[in-house]
């Protein structure tokens, strides 16, 4: 009887805590969305920002965020994939492997502002890359790499050894077994991880302030030559992202409608990150169903 009561109390406490988390989250989201959504308009999403006048938009910042995210994924995904495959399938149990693991662990626990500062000192100053999209993408890679590597390693590990034996017993080499059997089965988990990571990268500000910079130079959306300084694709131009823009407006914004722009931009940011999370779920689930045909 006593045990039953204890059990009941414990379960209810857990329920209350869980409910509390949900309520806080809903409150936060609701607050940001309610104050921000009314400011979102097509004009707001597509026009350039204003430094002193009102009526500025977030078009350039939005583009910068997306472009930076893509670049970051292009750099970090292949590296993480290689590292993840190595750690899960090939890494012998020795000091080298432990050091790699520890490095990943440390890297993933570094505060993003430290990563940003490191990127500033090394890439922006030392390598003279200046405040640029490339510097920002590299900083974000440092930020994304450990998470992605661990996600890929864990997704691969989750595939039962039986599958590896199946491949080997049919005369496939280890490498073919990994790439043709194990990797496809781990794909739903990997994609979910990539998209969730993308959400985090999209909202990251601290690592970018001193790397991609805080200015949204006017870019010419009619010019897609990546070597032209005014081109949106140019890697060496400074690029303020949405998250950095929000931070900047709130710390030194002087435009008359600063609070409205900030609220609108925050709402857009939240919506995009939410979309990433929902996408991650949908893609992961549907891929999983496709692979296992449990539909």
């Amino acid at each position: 009887m006593k045990i039953k009561l204890q059990n009941k109390i414990a379960i209810n406490i857990i329920r209350i805590i869980a409910a509390l988390v949900v309520v806080i989250l809903l409150f936060l989201l609701g607050d940001i969305l309610i104050s921000g959504v009314p400011h979102i308009s097509w004009h707001f999403l597509t026009s350039a920002s204003q430094s002193f006048a009102s009526g500025g938009g977030i078009g350039v910042q939005l583009f910068n965020s997306i472009y930076l995210l893509l670049l970051t994924l292009i750099i970090s995904f292949p590296i993480s994939l290689g590292a993840g495959i190595f750690l899960s399938e090939y890494a012998p149990k020795n000091i080298f492997t432990s050091i790699v693991r520890m490095a990943i662990e440390v890297l993933s626990s570094l505060p993003s502002v430290v990563v940003g500062l490191f990127g500033f000192l090394l890439f922006v100053v030392q390598f003279q890359m200046g405040f640029s999209i490339l510097s920002g993408a590299i900083a974000l890679t440092f930020f994304n790499l450990p998470l992605l590597t661990r996600n890929i390693e864990e997704s691969l590990r989750a595939v039962p050894d039986l599958q590896r034996e199946a491949g080997m017993a049919l005369g496939l080499s280890k490498w073919r077994t990994v790439t043709r059997v194990i990797l496809p089965e781990a794909l739903p988990g990997i994609i979910t991880g990539v998209v969730l990571g993308a959400g985090r990268v999209f909202g990251e500000a601290a690592a970018l302030i001193y790397t991609a910079g805080q200015s949204a130079t006017n870019i010419d959306f009619g010019n897609w030559n990546p070597f032209n300084a005014a081109s949106p694709l140019n890697l060496m131009r400074p690029a303020e992202t949405l998250a950095v823009h929000i931070w900047k407006i709130n710390s030194e914004g002087v435009m008359p409608d600063a609070s409205a722009v900030s609220a609108g931009a925050s709402a857009v940011l939240i919506i995009v990150v939410l979309l990433f999370n929902i996408f991650a779920r949908i893609i992961g689930n549907s891929l999983y169903r496709k692979l296992t045909a449990t539909k």
Partner: peptide, 13 residues
């Protein structure tokens, strides 16, 4: 020399 295992292990294909 082919092998079949204790637990069925078809590929996810």
């Amino acid at each position: 020399i082919g092998m079949v295992f204790q637990r069925p292990n078809p590929f996810s294909k």
